Amino acid sequence: MTMIRTARPADHPTIVDIAVRSGLFDADDAAAFGESLRETAAGTVLFVDGDGHGAAMLAPEAMSDAVWNLLFLAVDPSAQRAGIGRALVTEAEAHARAAGGRMLLIDTASVEDQAAARALYASLRFDRVATIPGYYGDGIDKVTYLRRL
C-alpha cells in the first residue's frame, strides 16, 4: 500500500526532481518550479508518497465557493502504474473534502504523453468538463476535469 504524507520544506528538492524525471518540467523550468514551492499561497498543500516517487500540489481556487484545484501531480516513470498517482489524487480529494470543498478540479494538457493522466482521472470518476484550445501553445489544449466532493 502506498503511504502518502503532507510534504515538508525538506521535501521540496525531491518534489522538483520528481517533476523533472516525470517530464512535466525540463531542467530550465525546474528552478522556477522549486521557487514556486517556497512561495505557495495560503491553504496550499503538498503531498509526497513515502518512497519519494510521487508528489502532488493542492490549493483552494481563488474567488470560488469551496473549489479546490490539483495544480500538480507527478510520478517518477520508474514507479508509474503502481498506484502512486491514484493514491495522491485520493489523498488530495480527502483533504479538500475535509476542508469543506465542494469540488476538485484538475487541469492537464491534450498531448499524448498526458494520455495516462487523463485515463487516471476518468477512472477516478472525474468528469471531463472543458477544453481550451491552444491554452498551453499551438495545438496543445488545456483539458479540465471536475469531481464533485
Rank of each mutant, 00 (worst) to 15 (best):
M1R: 15
M3C: 10
I4C: 04
I4R: 02
T6Q: 14
T6R: 14
P13I: 06
T14D: 13
I15H: 04
R21D: 00
G23M: 01
L24S: 09
D29L: 11
D29K: 12
A30S: 12
S36Q: 10
L37G: 00
T40C: 12
A42C: 06
G43K: 04
G43H: 05
L46Q: 12
G50M: 00
G52M: 04
G52A: 08
H53D: 14
H53F: 10
M57A: 15
P60M: 11
E61T: 13
A62C: 11
A62W: 13
M63H: 15
V67F: 02
V67E: 11
W68C: 05
W68T: 06
V75R: 02
V75I: 08
V75Q: 02
D76P: 00
A82K: 15
A82Y: 04
G85F: 03
V89E: 00
V89I: 11
T90L: 09
E93T: 12
A94L: 10
H95E: 15
R97Q: 12
G100I: 05
R102S: 14
R102V: 11
L104V: 01
A109M: 09
V111A: 11
Q114S: 09
A117R: 06
A119R: 15
A122T: 10
L124Y: 05
F126D: 03
F126I: 00
D127N: 08
D127G: 03
D127Y: 02
R128D: 09
A130I: 10
I132V: 15
G137H: 02
D138N: 12
D138S: 13
I140T: 15
K142A: 08
K142W: 02
K142F: 01
V143I: 14
L146F: 04
